[in-house]
Computed example of a mutant assay.
Amino acid sequence: MRIGDLRHRITLQKVERIRDSFGGEQLQWVDFARVWAAIYPLGGREYFAAQQINAEVSTKIVIRYLKGVEPTMRVNFKDRYFEILSVIHMAERKKELQLMCKEVV
């Protein structure tokens, strides 16, 4: 990864339980970190399921190492959201993370 490859500004988000005014809890996406990233579309497929056509796009997002990034998070890039399927810590050297994602359509 070269510094010039990190040209996309993304926001990593995580789910938190937020207590409402009635004492109940709601799940809400909150910002975890805003970082620079390289985004690489890997491929896509369309499939027929439950009488609906759904699009699934595989994407690799590379960021500098950041402690606390987990597969339960998602990536917000402009008006697009990506579900993180796995977090790969390349060579365990605390230099970069590869986020294998699926775009939420």
Results as ranks from 00 to 15, higher is better:
residue 3 I to W: 09
residue 28 Q to E: 13
residue 43 G to A: 07
residue 84 I to F: 06
residue 11 T to W: 05
residue 36 W to I: 02
residue 8 H to R: 13
residue 105 V to W: 12
residue 3 I to N: 06
residue 67 K to C: 02
residue 103 E to G: 02
residue 19 R to C: 00
residue 95 K to T: 14
residue 29 W to L: 00
residue 25 E to C: 00
residue 103 E to W: 05
residue 65 Y to P: 09
residue 58 S to E: 14
residue 20 D to Y: 01
residue 93 R to W: 01
residue 101 C to F: 07
residue 3 I to S: 11
residue 92 E to P: 01
residue 53 I to P: 01
residue 69 V to P: 01
residue 37 A to E: 09
residue 87 V to G: 13
residue 104 V to C: 04
residue 32 F to H: 11
residue 37 A to W: 08
residue 51 Q to A: 12
residue 23 G to M: 04
residue 39 I to D: 13
residue 4 G to E: 12
residue 29 W to E: 00
residue 72 T to F: 01
residue 76 N to A: 15
residue 28 Q to M: 10
residue 20 D to S: 03
residue 96 E to I: 15
residue 48 F to K: 05
residue 25 E to R: 00
residue 41 P to D: 14
residue 81 Y to N: 10
residue 48 F to S: 08
residue 19 R to I: 00
residue 76 N to L: 15
residue 40 Y to F: 12
residue 2 R to F: 10
residue 105 V to F: 10
residue 46 E to F: 08
residue 75 V to W: 07
residue 97 L to Y: 08
residue 46 E to W: 05
residue 102 K to T: 11
residue 88 I to Y: 15
residue 55 A to C: 03
residue 47 Y to R: 10
residue 71 P to E: 13
residue 60 K to I: 02
residue 90 M to C: 10
residue 37 A to N: 06
residue 29 W to M: 01
residue 22 F to D: 05
residue 73 M to D: 12
residue 52 Q to C: 06
residue 100 M to C: 04
residue 10 I to F: 04
residue 1 M to T: 14
residue 65 Y to V: 06
residue 97 L to V: 11
residue 94 K to I: 07
residue 66 L to M: 10
residue 21 S to C: 04
residue 89 H to W: 08
residue 68 G to C: 05
residue 66 L to K: 14
residue 35 V to E: 12
residue 35 V to F: 04
residue 52 Q to M: 13
residue 40 Y to I: 08
residue 97 L to C: 09
residue 9 R to M: 07
residue 47 Y to G: 09
residue 12 L to E: 01
residue 11 T to L: 04
residue 83 E to H: 13
residue 77 F to E: 04
residue 49 A to S: 10
residue 102 K to D: 06
residue 8 H to V: 03
residue 24 G to L: 00
residue 51 Q to G: 08
residue 60 K to F: 05
residue 72 T to H: 03
residue 95 K to W: 05
residue 98 Q to M: 12
residue 3 I to K: 05
residue 25 E to T: 01
residue 64 R to S: 13
residue 47 Y to I: 06
residue 42 L to P: 03
residue 39 I to E: 14
residue 16 E to L: 03
residue 3 I to Q: 12
residue 85 L to W: 02
residue 59 T to W: 09
residue 38 A to Q: 11
residue 87 V to L: 14
residue 94 K to Q: 15
residue 95 K to L: 15
